[in-house]
């Protein structure tokens, strides 16, 4: 408990600081605009209501995921770096909180802000979806929830790079990791294809290396059930549960690594 109090205090400060950021407001506004525009796209795509609703769902869910990722990276990569630059980190670390607790607090603060942002964007989407004649399904709610869990992993990546790099470099690295996170399955497929078409020790080693990269890089496709939700395809609850466990484990790894780097940093 004595450890948790200061962590939550840091989280509260990070929450307030991030919530005031105008870039976040702009991105949430842009997402809501996209959601509204999706009705127009649906409308011009034909008379069939199911098709119109699918386009509204596709575009809105994609906008929430994409703009949410940008917001998480933009806010996350500045999070720790700014504190160090402004030297406000000294006053915080002078309190009874270690560097690991500081990182966890910062992460929780931003994750909290993004939870509110995703909730606002989701509410806008569900309102537009309802007005367009759709009835929000459990699948859509699960897709929104897993989109937030995906963003929680991206925030972890951003916080790690906030400690390990300058904001611009960190943002670029985090964005690349976030993009790569949706195509890691291709690495595994590439390895399997190579092993099928050729033989030899080199190929076996390469296949293992590619499989290792596939597992160790964040696999954001684990959270992507948006196409299923938009099409009304059932989402396996066990998959959703496992994806949640995966996110917890991955965030723990990222925060552990961020702490190790931050402890070695000379402030």
């Amino acid at each position: 408990m004595s450890w948790l109090g200061p962590v939550l205090a840091v989280a509260g400060l990070a929450f307030r600081e991030s919530a005031r950021n105008r870039v976040l407001h702009a991105l949430v506004g842009a997402t809501l605009l996209m959601t509204g525009a999706s009705v127009v796209f649906g409308w011009v795509s034909g008379d069939e209501q199911a098709r119109q609703l699918k386009i509204v769902a596709d575009l809105s869910l994609s906008a929430i995921a994409l703009l949410g990722t940008i917001a998480s990276i933009f806010l996350g990569t500045n999070l720790v770096y700014q504190e160090v630059e402004r030297r406000t980190v000294y006053t915080v670390l002078a309190r009874p909180i270690d560097r690991g607790g500081f990182i966890v607090g910062k992460y929780l603060g931003l994750a909290g802000v993004m939870a509110v942002a995703v909730a606002a964007m989701s509410a806008g989407f569900l309102l537009v979806y309802g007005l367009a004649g759709g009835r929000p399904s459990v699948g859509l709610l699960v897709a929104l929830a897993l989109t937030y869990v995906e963003l929680a992993v991206v925030i972890g990546v951003a916080v790690f790079f906030s400690v390990a790099a300058h904001p611009i470099e960190g943002a670029v690295f985090a964005f690349v990791v976030a993009l790569a996170g949706h195509v890691t399955a291709d690495l595994q497929r590439l390895g399997a294809d190579l092993a099928r078409d050729a033989s030899g020790v080199g190929v076996v080693v390469l296949e293992k290396v590619l499989y290792g990269a596939y597992v160790l890089l964040p696999n954001l496709e684990n959270f992507n059930v948006r196409p299923h939700a938009a099409h009304g395809v059932a989402i396996d609850p066990a998959h959703a549960g496992l994806a949640l466990v995966y996110a917890v484990v991955y965030v723990a790894i990222l925060l552990g690594l961020a702490t190790v780097v931050f402890r070695r940093k000379v402030l």
Partner: peptide, 8 residues
Amino acid sequence: PVVVALAG
């Protein structure tokens, strides 16, 4: 943190 990262 190291143990958490490796175990994870």
